[in-house]
Every structure is written in C-alpha cells, then in structure tokens.
Amino acid sequence: MMGSLILRTAARFLLPLLLLFSLFMLLRGHDEPGGGFIAGLIAAVAFALYLFAFDAARTRQLLGVDPRLLLGLGLLAATVSGLPSILLGEAFFTAIWWPIDVPGFGEVKLSTPLLFDIGVYLLVLGAIMTIVLALDEAEEE
C-alpha cells in the first residue's frame, strides 16, 4: 500500500485524538457549534486516515462492525427520537428533556435531540465508511 512510515505512525496517534474530538463535537453540539453531522464526518475522517495508512481489511477490523449496521442503527435512533413526543401527545419531533443529577458532576440533560444527534453521527459515519471502503476494495482487487 501507499502508506509511508510517517503516515502510519501519525495515523496511529491521530486516530484516537480525532475520535475523541468527534465525541466532543457531538456532545457540545446542542447549544454551540458542532453536532451529529460534523462529528460523524470527523470520525469518518479518522477511519479514512487509517485506511490510507493501512488497508481496508485492517480498517474493517478496527471498526469492529459492518458499516451497514452503523447506518441502520443511526437511522433507527434518529427516527425513534421523534416518537416519544407522539406518545406524549405532542407533535412529531418535539424536543423532550430528561435532566438527571449525576453526583460529583452536576446536571446532565438527556434529551431526544441528543438521541437524534447520536443517530446522525452513526448514520454519517456508517454511510461514509460504506462508500470509502467500497471504493478502496474495488481499487485493491
């Protein structure tokens, strides 16, 4: 493969950093710039970098699950996040909040928009990895 020693070493160190940064972007997204889409892109970039440095087989192994599963789970989470509001008799996709107190940390606001964002995150990651892996595997053949 084309990966040089420098790229491989850098990819090893950058991958966890990028993934951590993507989670940070995902969670700060509700009130500040960020959110599921951009975080999903960053996570996908992390894996794509690994793909460039190594190969498709190792990237799949690192990903652990098939990207189609990520796609499905993401779509499911994003769609389901609209349902609680219907069950409570409100309009589809009305935001519902469940604040909980975590001792020693403060208040954590769980909500349906958070679930939606996580869904978008997984969806974007899954979709991009499906495409990038398919292209790369077609090249390797």
Partner: peptide
C-alpha cells in the same frame, strides 16, 4: 450541501463502477 455531498459521493462510486 449535505445532500449534494451524499449524492456526489454516490456519483463518484457510480462512475468508478461504470468505468470498471
């Protein structure tokens, strides 16, 4: 932009497959 990103990613895969 998000939509065209997705569609164009598909279009790139398509022309690649078509070329093959």
């Amino acid at each position: 932009i998000v939509i065209s990103f997705g569609v164009l990613a598909f279009a790139v895969v398509l022309i690649h497959r078509a070329y093959e």
